[in-house]
Amino acid sequence: MTPLDDTDRRLLNRLQEDLPLTPRPYADVAAELGITEHDLLDRLARMKADRVITRFGPFFDAAAMGGDFCLCAMAVPEAEFETVLTKVNAHPEVAHNYERTHRLNMWFVLATETPEAITATADAIERETGLTVHRFPKLQEFFIGFRVAA
């Protein structure tokens, strides 16, 4: 991966904030940062290709669409980990999945278009894997402002 220079870092910090809803949004942000639109697009494409940025675009809130999110966790035996992972990730409802250091070692987020689909998907994963899917829906959110200083 190409090391990030100062302009990349400024761009990445800016792009974690909202992009304007204008016909030339990249040109608008480029002007804010004092670079050209062409340079911005090149840098953005490179950072995506290098996976510094995993995704660029709208962040959707499934709950606001009438759907739901749920954090889930499973205790997966090491020997079965890859097999179970394939089965879990095959569900399009699995939006993120992380391996973590704990007896509950697989943590994933379900994002679905209806609240009922959370239960249906988690139950399907239990049937397919024979493992319990612990469900941790949010009861209260104390902050939403995920930003990483690049």
Partner: peptide, 12 residues
Amino acid sequence: RGVIRRIAAAPN
């Protein structure tokens, strides 16, 4: 309506 929270980069 909150269906789109923002249009932005997800950093790794």
